[in-house]
C-alpha cells in the first residue's frame, strides 16, 4: 500500500483574543508600560531538543523592542517600553516577582481558556488578576496599564530539516514519521493597574515567520497587539 505523499506547505499564523465582556481597548490619554518582553529563540535539533541561541535571542529581543516602539509612536499616547527591569521605575526584585506572577497567570489562562480545560467557575467569565502587587506597581509608577509579552521561536537545524525530508519520503513507502519544524508562539496580556485585573489576552501560533529579522518582529507585534478588539460574549474568541 503506497500512499501518495502530499507535500503541503501551510504558512499559517493564528491568533485568538479573549477579553471580558466589559472590556474596551484603552482610548485617549492613558499611560501604558510595556514590561520587559520575555523572548527566547532557539535551534530545534534533530532529536527534538530546542537549544536556546543567545545571538538569535538578543537579535529578536532588540527587533521586538524596536517594533513596539514604532507601533506606539505611530499611535501617539503615552507608552513607555521597558527594555529591562530597571527601566520600569520600581524595585527590581518586586518587578521580577510581578513578571513571574504574570507567567503563572498567563499559563493558567492558556490552560483554562485555550487548551480546553475549562473551569466551571470561569465558564462565562474572563476573570484573572495579578492582585495587589500590580495595583501597588501602578500606584508607584503612575501607569494605568501594563502590557506583558512573551514570545518563543525555534528554527530547524540542518539535521532536523534532513529528518523532515526523510519523513516525507517515508510517507511515500507507507509508514509516515513526521518530524515537526520550528514553531513560533507568543502571548500578550494587558493588565489594568487600577484594579490588577488581566483585561485582555491574546495568543499567537505560527509555523512561519522569523523574529530575528525586523520584518518578522514587526509581523509578530502587529499580529499580537495591532488589533485589540472590545470584549465579546465570553466563550467565543474575539477574532
Amino acid at each position: 500500500m503506497v500512499a501518495a505523499a502530499v507535500m503541503s506547505v501551510t504558512a499559517c499564523t493564528t491568533t485568538r483574543q479573549v477579553a471580558d465582556t466589559s472590556f474596551t481597548p484603552p482610548q485617549g490619554d492613558y499611560r501604558l508600560i510595556v514590561m520587559q518582553p520575555d523572548i527566547s529563540v532557539g535551534l530545534l535539533t534533530a532529536g527534538g531538543v530546542v537549544e536556546q541561541r543567545e545571538d538569535w535571542t538578543d537579535q529578536a529581543t532588540a527587533n521586538v523592542l524596536q517594533s513596539l516602539r514604532a507601533m506606539h509612536a505611530a499611535r501617539g499616547g503615552n507608552a513607555m517600553i521597558a527594555a529591562t527591569r530597571e527601566e520600569s521605575g520600581w524595585d527590581v526584585a518586586e518587578v521580577t516577582d510581578l513578571v513571574r506572577l504574570h507567567e503563572a497567570v498567563g499559563a493558567s489562562i492558556t490552560l483554562h481558556k485555550y487548551l480546553g480545560l475549562a473551569l466551571p467557575t470561569k465558564k462565562n467569565r474572563f476573570d484573572w488578576t495579578l492582585g495587589e502587587q500590580a495595583v501597588e506597581f501602578g500606584r508607584a509608577t503612575r501607569f494605568d496599564y501594563a502590557l506583558f509579552l512573551h514570545a518563543q521561536d525555534s528554527f530547524s537545524s540542518a539535521g532536523r530539516v534532513a529528518l523532515q525530508v526523510a519523513g516525507f519520503l517515508s510517507c511515500a513507502v507507507g509508514v509516515c514519521v513526521m518530524a515537526t519544524g520550528g514553531q513560533q508562539s507568543a502571548f500578550a496580556s494587558l493588565v489594568d493597574l487600577k484594579t490588577g485585573q488581566v483585561v485582555w489576552f491574546n495568543t499567537l501560533a505560527s509555523s512561519v515567520g522569523d523574529i530575528r529579522t525586523a520584518e518578522g518582529a514587526d509581523k509578530l507585534v502587529k499580529a499580537l497587539l495591532g488589533d485589540m478588539k472590545p470584549g465579546a460574549p465570553v466563550g467565543k474568541p474575539a477574532g
Binding site: A46, V49, E51, G159, S170, V177
Partner: peptide
C-alpha cells in the same frame, strides 16, 4: 550527549519506519 543521542534515536526511528 543528549542532543547527539536523541538525534540518533530519531534517525533510528525513521530508518525503521522507512
Amino acid at each position: 550527549d543528549l542532543k547527539r543521542k536523541s538525534a540518533a534515536a530519531a534517525i533510528v526511528g525513521l530508518a525503521a519506519a522507512g
